[in-house]
C-alpha cells in the first residue's frame, strides 16, 4: 500500500510518517509538507519528500495527478491545517477548508486513491451544561455565531468531508481528535500551560481529555488499514480535571472570577501574542467534554495507550 501524508513537516504529520515507516504493510510514503516548513524526517528509500502550498488548488491538483498517480497512492492522510488561532482571513480559510474541499473532489476522480483519512478536531463539538459530558459522534456541533474562525473552519472542513461520504467509491474517514497537548499542534491548552501562572474560574474544575502525538499517529494508522468509513472520535489516554492538568504541567494556578480571567488573558495576548484565548475556551473551563471513543475502538480497533509526556511525572 502506498500512502500520501499531507502536513508531513508538522509534529503530527511527522509522527504519522514515522509510524507508517515501521508498518510493513505500507510500501511507500509520499510525504507532502506545507511550503516553507522544513522537513525533519531523515532520508529513507521508502519516503518521497515534496512540498506544496496547500491553499493553491492548482498545486494540489498537480501533486495528486502527477507524483501521487505515478506512485500509485491508494490512501491519503490529510493532517495539514493552519494551527494558529491568531491567524485569520481568506488565506487561512483556503488552507483549512478550500484545500480539503479540493482534495476530496480530486480524490473522488483519482484513478488510484480509494481512501481519504482526514484530521478533524474535538473542538467542533459544542460543550455546554445541558449536553452530555461524554461526547459521542452525534453530539451537537459548535455552530455558535460568535465562534472564532479557528473553530468555524474546523466545523466547515468536517462538514465538507462528511457531506461526501457514501456518494462515490472513495472511502472517507474523519477522525475527530482530542486536543493534542504538544507544541505546533494548535493546542490552546499547551499555550495556556506555557504561562508561568495559570488562571482558572473559581468553583469549577471540569474534566478534560488529551491525546498524545503517538496515539494520534496510531489512530491514523488504524484508519488507513480498515475498509470502514465514517466519523470517529479519537480520545487520548489522559482524562483528568483542569487543576490536575495544571499541576502535572508544574504550574501554579489561581482561581478567580470569570470577567477577571477574560481580561487578564486578553492583556496577555496583546502583550505576549500567545495563542490562548479565554473566550474560545470559556465553556471547556466550566463543563466537562470528553470524547467517547467506543466507536473508534469497535470499528478501527483504536485504543489510546500512550500518555501525554507530563513534565511533573517525568521528574
Amino acid at each position: 500500500m502506498n500512502v500520501l501524508v499531507t502536513g508531513a513537516s508538522s509534529p503530527i504529520g511527522e509522527q504519522v510518517v514515522q509510524r507508517l515507516l515501521r508498518d510493513s504493510r505500507v510500501a511507500h510514503i509520499l510525504a507532502v509538507a506545507d511550503k516553507g516548513v522544513p522537513f525533519s524526517i531523515p532520508e529513507n528509500p521508502r519516503i518521497t519528500l515534496t512540498e506544496i502550498k496547500f491553499k493553491s488548488q492548482r498545486q494540489l491538483h498537480t501533486l495528486l495527478f502527477g507524483l501521487a498517480l505515478k506512485k500509485s497512492v491508494q490512501v491519503v492522510i490529510h493532517t495539514s491545517q493552519a494551527e494558529s488561532a491568531n491567524r485569520e482571513g481568506d488565506s487561512v480559510h483556503a488552507h483549512n477548508v478550500e484545500s480539503l474541499r479540493a482534495l476530496v473532489k480530486f480524490s473522488e476522480r483519482h484513478p488510484t486513491i480509494r481512501r481519504l483519512v482526514i484530521r478533524s478536531s474535538g473542538a467542533v463539538y459544542q460543550v455546554q451544561r445541558d449536553l452530555p459530558a461524554l461526547i459521542s459522534e452525534d453530539h451537537p456541533l459548535n455552530m455558535a455565531a460568535g465562534a472564532p474562525q479557528w473553530v468555524r473552519d474546523r466545523v466547515e472542513a468536517d462538514f465538507t468531508a462528511c457531506a461526501r461520504m457514501g456518494l462515490s467509491t472513495l472511502q472517507v474517514v474523519v477522525l475527530r481528535m482530542a486536543e493534542i497537548l504538544a507544541s505546533g499542534c494548535g493546542s490552546q491548552m499547551y499555550d495556556y500551560l506555557d504561562s508561568s501562572l495559570c488562571l482558572r474560574p473559581i468553583g469549577f474544575d471540569p474534566m478534560l481529555n488529551f491525546l498524545s502525538l503517538e496515539d494520534a499517529a496510531q489512530a491514523f494508522q488504524h484508519a488507513t488499514h480498515t475498509s470502514e468509513q465514517g466519523v470517529f472520535n479519537i480520545p487520548g489516554a489522559d482524562t483528568l480535571p483542569l487543576t490536575e492538568v495544571i499541576s502535572l504541567w508544574g504550574r501554579p494556578s489561581v482561581a478567580m472570577p470569570e470577567p477577571g480571567i477574560y481580561w487578564m488573558y486578553k492583556v496577555r495576548q496583546h502583550l505576549r501574542g500567545g495563542q490562548f484565548r479565554y473566550g474560545m475556551n470559556r465553556r471547556r473551563f466550566h463543563y466537562p467534554g470528553i470524547l467517547d471513543g467506543r466507536r473508534a475502538m469497535d470499528v478501527l480497533r483504536y485504543v489510546p495507550s500512550q500518555s501525554v509526556s507530563w513534565p511533573e511525572l517525568k521528574e
Binding site: 459530558a133 474534566m207 489516554a237 482524562t239 483528568l240 480535571p241 490536575e244 466537562p288 470528553i290 500518555s307
Partner: peptide, 10 residues
Amino acid sequence: DAGHGYDAFG
C-alpha cells in the same frame, strides 16, 4: 479509572 484516578465524569 479513566487514567489519572478519576472516571470520565470526574
